[in-house]
């Protein structure tokens, strides 16, 4: 029944295993730099959203880092699909498109959650107190699901490597910088606020930050996360269904 999911995961995790050390090392560097520069550099005096900046920053790094990892499967899928034709092996197997999508999305979530774990290690090292509630776990799962689905969608509709880089430059990077990961979005000018509030990262950052720092979680934002996640999963499904190897 779940042969497709198992197969895709078997493939992805086996390849990941071989690159794990390099990958983890690479993905652990940039959050550390942010922590040193903005956490230590700003010291305790800078306050954002009513808390010391470093406490404000850590949840932002969690959403940023896990987004990068979960969404990052787009590039991997793109290479395996266009250069190595691996998707053909999935498409000729007696499995459904849904299983392929689920397999890839689960892999993206796995990567995203792994990087979340890493930031928790940093939180301990930098002596930042965080609250782990069920709501946080629900939120991070939805967050990684959302961006893994978006990554899968992109991998399927984007034609090649170059366009992939373009999407990253014009959508993903601005989103990471603007959506409240490094500063509270309510300080933004009106126009930017408009932009920021159509981007899903804004909501996951708000929800995840609130749940980790003991603030009130806005249930509307939480519902919007679920909505975005559902939407992108559908686009991923239809993108895979439409694909001709």
């Amino acid at each position: 029944m779940f042969n497709g999911i198992k197969g895709v995961l078997y493939r992805e995790l086996n390849v990941y295993k071989k690159r794990a050390r390099k990958q983890i090392l690479a993905s652990s560097l940039s959050p550390l730099l942010f922590l040193i520069a903005f956490g230590w550099g700003f010291g305790d005096k800078v306050v954002a959203g009513g808390m010391p900046y470093i406490t404000f920053l850590i949840p932002g790094l969690i959403t940023m880092s896990s987004l990068n990892q979960s969404y990052g499967i787009a590039q991997e899928i793109n290479i395996t699909r266009f250069y190595f034709h691996l998707f053909d092996e999935y498409l000729i197997a007696p499995i459904t498109y849904m299983e392929i999508v689920l397999g890839e999305v689960l892999y993206g979530m796995f990567k995203g959650l792994l990087s979340t774990l890493l930031i928790f290690v940093y939180a301990v090292l930098f002596k930042v107190q965080l609250i782990l509630s069920p709501l946080f776990f629900a939120a991070i799962i939805i967050h990684t699901f959302l961006f893994a689905s978006l990554g899968t969608t992109m991998a399927m509709i984007v034609r090649d490597h170059g366009s992939q880089a373009t999407v990253n430059t014009f959508v993903i990077t601005p989103m990471i910088f603007l959506c409240g990961t490094f500063f509270p979005v309510d300080k933004l000018p009106y126009l930017f606020k408009l932009i920021v509030y159509v981007l899903p990262l804004t909501y996951s950052t708000k929800v995840i930050r609130a749940s980790l720092t003991g603030g009130d979680v806005n249930l509307l934002y939480f519902s919007l996360m679920i909505l975005f996640a559902g939407l992108f999963f559908c686009t991923a499904y239809f993108a895979v269904k439409r694909v001709e190897a």
């Binding site: 042969n3 497709g4 198992k6 197969g7 078997y10 493939r11 086996n14 390849v15 071989k18 395996t80 190595f84 034709h85 691996l86 053909d88 092996e89 999935y90 000729i92 197997a93 007696p94 499995i95």
Partner: peptide, 25 residues
């Protein structure tokens, strides 16, 4: 199916490539 081009997974071993096929089928 045997395609005109090779679509093996370069990063997996021979055994793993066959194992993947077993799972998928």
């Amino acid at each position: 199916v045997v395609h005109q081009y090779s679509n093996l997974d370069r990063d997996l071993t021979a055994y793993e490539n066959l194992y993947l096929h077993c799972i998928l089928h």
